[in-house]
């Protein structure tokens, strides 16, 4: 028993303490979070744009179809179909080694790839949210003479936001964990450093268990924040 404890302490020290290796993990975690934020922003912007284009296209008055909107709608459809129909790993490999093969900044390419991937899923979530708002709401807005965009901006989107928050939170958590794939294209995030430490000490157990704990801690924090935000938005219902 004592020997085992010594073993644990030794492994732990080698994985985290010796040579200030914990700093490497922190650096990796920082990059992982950076990846998450960039991908998140990109994903949300893309997702909302695609969702608005697709909803606007579907809600056009017959006989007044806008050809530009039709073209955009086709592009959006192709985007969601291709992105949702191929593995993210494959997409990342294509971004890093085919399209941007000459670039060295693999972390940024990774953030870009994940953001584009996430956008397709966010688009479907947002579109569902927009459709979940009672049609009478937009009819009321339009009947008052408000334009389509104003009706969306002031009436439909604020109400949709509340409905999509749980699904969106879920998507964000998935995205955070998916950043681990960036290690496959050589991005220097959490897994990259864990592997590096493991290779040096010939013991991967502690580095891997350690980063698992780090991922878990961040996800628990995100879940808690999401719950808090939802509770606050619900409160406004019962005013």
């Amino acid at each position: 028993m004592e020997a085992w404890l010594m073993d644990v302490a030794d492994g732990f020290t080698k994985a985290f303490i010796t040579g200030d290796r914990w700093k490497l993990y922190l650096k990796g975690l920082g990059v992982t979070l950076e990846l998450t934020v960039i991908a998140l922003v990109l994903g949300v912007i893309l997702g909302v744009l695609v969702a608005v284009v697709r909803t606007a296209h579907d809600q056009q008055r017959p006989g007044r179809r806008n050809p530009l909107l039709g073209l955009l709608n086709v592009l959006c459809k192709v985007y969601t179909t291709v992105i949702r129909g191929t593995p993210m790993m494959v997409q990342l490999l294509i971004w890093a080694f085919v399209i941007f093969a000459s670039s060295r900044n693999r972390t940024l390419i990774g953030a870009f790839g994940i953001g584009i991937n996430s956008g397709a899923y966010v688009a479907e979530i947002v579109r569902g949210g927009l459709m979940s708002v009672d049609i009478g709401q937009s009819e009321a807005g339009r009947s008052l003479g408000l334009g389509y965009l104003d009706t969306m901006r002031f009436i439909v989107i604020p109400q949709a936001f509340k409905n999509i928050l749980p699904a969106l939170g879920n998507e964000f958590i998935t995205l955070f964990k998916d950043t681990s794939l960036v290690s496959a294209i050589g991005g220097a995030e959490l897994i990259y450093y864990a592997k590096a430490v493991g290779a040096k000490t010939f013991d991967v157990m502690y580095p891997y268990l350690g980063i698992a704990c780090m991922y878990l801690a961040v996800v628990m924090l995100l879940t808690w924040l999401q719950g808090k935000l939802e509770r606050r938005l619900r409160q406004s219902d019962r005013r």
């Binding site: 009819e139 009321a140 807005g141 008052l144 003479g145 009436i155």
Partner: peptide
């Protein structure tokens, strides 16, 4: 421009359709 026409035609709905977020 239907928005301009609708500005001169008020409408009241069976289910009120007030905006709950305002």
């Amino acid at each position: 421009n239907i928005d301009q026409v609708r500005q001169k035609m008020g409408m009241v709905f069976q289910h009120f359709n007030l905006f709950p977020n305002m």
